[in-house]
Design a protein around this nucleic acid. Structure first.
Lengths: 336, 336
DNA sequence: TTGTACGCGTTATCAA
DNA sequence: TTGATAACGCGTACAA
């Protein structure tokens, strides 16, 4: 940095000002410094910056055993935002299944050791009050991705899971389907409850009093297979089933195959997420696309934008990706 | 740190010595310092350490678009090793598909910006001489996971892909199979070539002159589906097929279903990797387990163990995970 | 609007 | 085997 100052013919502090976009700097001086930085190919030393200053230039993301597909997309989005802003990304995994006490221990250790400027929380950590309380007490800024509880408690980035599931219901309805099945996600996962609600409410609007056959899973392939077998083991199975995520939809498709029900000719399937597995099954899965990568990107940018006072809530768009697992059916005359 | 020195009644430099395991320290002094550290719950400041010293306490892992499953396992293993050693993990993604010049640009930027103490290279970057040359010139230590070319050029951690594929061949043979199919990975991926060689050589040993039907894929589900259709579109299809990874095996299983060939009753399938998708298909996939997580763990530990002079090569074990996609067949009398 | 002096917490160098 | 002191490269506080 002193080299830059010499080349630019200014003080070392002015260089610092330019780098940090501090205010009282004339345009002329800024230009001089910038060109000196360019010619010297100067890169600030983050260690020195964080030692002298208050920032660490490190951001943390907290995961709690989500699917690899989800994790990777989150990381990609967050990474992109970090590169753009000169930040580094630290990735930490917490296991909430190990019990409350242990969870607290993990969190404390993490907060003590990882000098970060903030955290990004992913589901289902986003809805874990133990974690939120701990974070609040630490005073570190954080942002939540797709939270369901305690809106307004912290900045957040999300999609409207309820509306998205309603769109899936509408989509199936518009294709002529009238007998529906629904495979739910785990109770602990707030978004799963919203997806259920959105789907059921829309069906009820379209055909008041209609019944939707439900079965519960835990977002895993195996649970989708089991739930599918469950749903299909009736005299008059649904003509279309909505699974609350793609992994369960994949399991469901296997259950269909076992019963000799061809997807989509005999039965239609729609998933949620648009994850890797959506194109690792046959036929390719029609599903609700969630902009996971973009959510993470947005979360990081938001977290870094010099903290606003009131917690922001950014809502991103979803859309249905129409592949090959849903087919329109001709309405029998009796349908209503 | 000065607090620790005061409490322990020693100089600040002695504390530093204990923390860094430097040599001339008496046992007594070491104990005093350690207990002081414990009572004060002291944690060294990495920023100060890297500013004053030569280490950055950051390790980088380089990825080039592998599957999410693979990436996640690598990260988990590496993360564990980093936590144990007090290091931080930086994850970087390079895209080698964008052309040589661009690749070099990405690499240069990465090396200049990311102050790291070393890098872990994952396939197919491990076998990219452009990358290796660049890294060698930078002088930064690095270790390769599962390299195929230029052994001895750098430390490495790997499994014996050739032997592992031979084991798969032997496994199928022992189950009574005599007509084999083989779905290869992409040409650019060195390990894929080794798997092919191992499989073919073993079959040739067991039944000299036997022919194995081959088809080529690129490690993707879609390519496995296409290769499977290819292999199955003959008068006398194989009774058992080895796919060079699990994603292609999943595609192959769909191709089987299309033909009305039940797995494993009509046709047996064995994969490679034991990835997430192995239990996201039905029946669950019998596959060769690769200790990916452990390889990454070992790589980081090895990289951090104060650099040895001659490049080490650590070989880990593989084994077949027997699930439900391979069935023994009764030998027809005519088989040989 | 710009510059000066100091200190952040640690390691390196050298002396004891 | 131990200790004193000077860096490391930058931001903060304050003065100009």
């Amino acid at each position: 940095m002193s080299d830059v100052a010499r080349v630019a013919g200014v003080s070392i502090k002015s260089v610092s000002r330019v780098i940090n976009d501090e205010l009282p700097v004339s345009a002329k001086l800024r230009e001089k410094v910038k060109s000196a930085i360019a010619t010297l190919d100067y890169i600030p030393n983050p260690a020195a910056r964080s030692l002298a200053g208050t920032r660490t230039f490190v951001l943390g993301i907290l995961f709690d055993n989500p699917s690899p597909h989800y994790t990777i997309k989150i990381q990609k989005g967050a990474y992109k935002a970090c590169v753009e802003t000169g930040y580094h990304l630290r990735i930490d995994h917490i296991d909430s299944a190990l019990g409350k006490d242990f969870l607290i221990d993990q969190l404390s250790a993490l907060l003590r050791h990882s000098r970060t400027d903030g955290f990004v929380l992913t589901p289902p950590l986003t809805d874990n009050r133990l974690v939120l309380d701990h974070l609040d007490r630490s005073g570190l800024p954080y942002i939540r991705i797709a939270p369901v509880i305690d809106h307004g408690r912290s900045p957040e980035v999300r999609i409207d899971d309820t509306a998205a599931a309603a769109t899936a219901a509408q989509f199936l309805w518009d294709k002529g389907h009238r007998r529906f099945g629904l495979i739910n996600g785990p109770a602990a996962h707030g978004a799963a409850a919203n997806r259920r609600r959105g789907f059921l409410e829309r069906i009820d609007q379209l055909a008041p009093g209609a019944t939707v056959m439900e079965s519960n899973g835990d977002f895993s392939f195996a649970s989708g297979l089991a739930a599918g077998r469950d749903l299909l083991a009736t005299a008059k199975p649904p003509s279309a089933i909505f699974a609350a995520n793609d992994d369960m939809a994949a399991g469901l498709m296997v259950a269909c195959a076992e019963r000799g029900l061809q997807v989509p000719r005999a039965i239609s399937v729609i998933g949620f997420d648009d994850s890797w597995i959506a194109t690792s099954v046959w036929p390719y899965l029609t599903t609700v696309h969630q902009p996971i990568e973009d959510m993470a990107y947005t979360a990081v940018r938001q977290l870094l934008s010099r903290e606003v006072d009131e917690p922001s809530s950014i809502e991103l768009d979803y859309h249905i990706v129409e592949r090959d697992s849903v087919l329109p059916i001709v309405l029998p005359a009796s349908s209503a």
